[in-house]
Design a protein around this nucleic acid. Sequence first.
DNA 1: TTATTAAACGACACAATGATGAAAAATGAA
DNA 2: TTCATTTTTCATCATTGTGTCGTTTAATAA
Lengths: 199, 199
Amino acid sequence: MDTKKVDRRVRKTRKQLRDGLARLMEKKSIRDIKVKELVEEVDINRSTFYLHYSDIYDMLSKIEEELIEEIEEALRQYPLGEGRKSMDFLCRMFEIMEENREIYKALCGQNGDANFVVRLENMVGSEALRSLATLFEQVPKREISFLYAYCLNGCLGMVKMWLIYDGKETPEEMAGLMVRMVTNTLREYHDAQEKSAIS
Amino acid sequence: MDTKKVDRRVRKTRKQLRDGLARLMEKKSIRDIKVKELVEEVDINRSTFYLHYSDIYDMLSKIEEELIEEIEEALRQYPLGEGRKSMDFLCRMFEIMEENREIYKALCGQNGDANFVVRLENMVGSEALRSLATLFEQVPKREISFLYAYCLNGCLGMVKMWLIYDGKETPEEMAGLMVRMVTNTLREYHDAQEKSAIS
DNA sequence: TTATTAAACGACACAATGATGAAAAATGAA
DNA sequence: TTCATTTTTCATCATTGTGTCGTTTAATAA
């Protein structure tokens, strides 16, 4: 990584700002966190903030970018395909989220950023459910998008629940539970497929 | 209703402001809509805005309040219980959302308000899934909250999909599809229940 | 040690906010 | 229609946060 190449001072201030933002987001909505407030929280000159970000939302979106990137890397590492691979990815995803639980909690919670959730959804969704593509062939065209939305948002709901209520479940347990949920939802179509395979 | 009791001027300005906000929200995120901008959009004096709302977010939350209230009324009208009642409520809910599709789209979409979605979720969720309480008895305690989160967020995902992509499905079709999805998800537990009833 | 780079500092014009009091306009009730 | 009431408008003001700059100070990598 180019992590080592960045000036220590830059690393330090970015970390301070990021931690400070997470701290402030626990207390209040991002909508009324001011640049001035943040730099006072972490005791950094306001000019310095503008050296790194153009405003609070720019900063937020750059943090989100890093988080998304981390998940994308996991997707590359465990390219989805057959069952086992999906589990591996999901486990890794929950691990990543556990490591950054505070910021994920803030972003996915009540005062969170709907945009971030949508981005997560699109990225994971388009990949994660691709492995179930064959199942979807049995679904009537008109229903596909709703079935897709149902499963995807359902999974995201589980993630949110786990994040926000500080769930003690291990990444493995969560991944297993999630796969079971989706499997149940798709069983109807799965059964139909088996039937048509027999006849 | 006290709708008639409010001064015509007040009704007029509130409506202007509300429509103007919806118009602005199509173009940009609520986060950078300014009071000044809104009052210029609808050609109303800035002081007048402050006569009604303390700021843009106060205005938004009051609009949300009205929307929530409308759904709550539907819940009172069709108190959930057994199957048929749930369908009636869901149909009515989709009707309400269809009538206000633009504002719902804005609030539930990418630039939407996470807080509003959470409120919808809590209200509908706590009521709508109560009717399935008996089914949930069969679910292991540890899994209940995740099953709940999965179903609830899955349903919400369907709603969002329908709103955002201007789904042409009728409220009845959507309600039916939604019930089917949840039923499928719960089938595993439902079957277990039947088995245990036999043994 | 030294050249480079980042952070701090002070200053600036600017935009939006929120509040105020008084004048003008619209309204509902008689 | 008239009139008292209420809302909206208007001009003004102090306040706060924004974004940008040039300079100085300090930390860093080599």
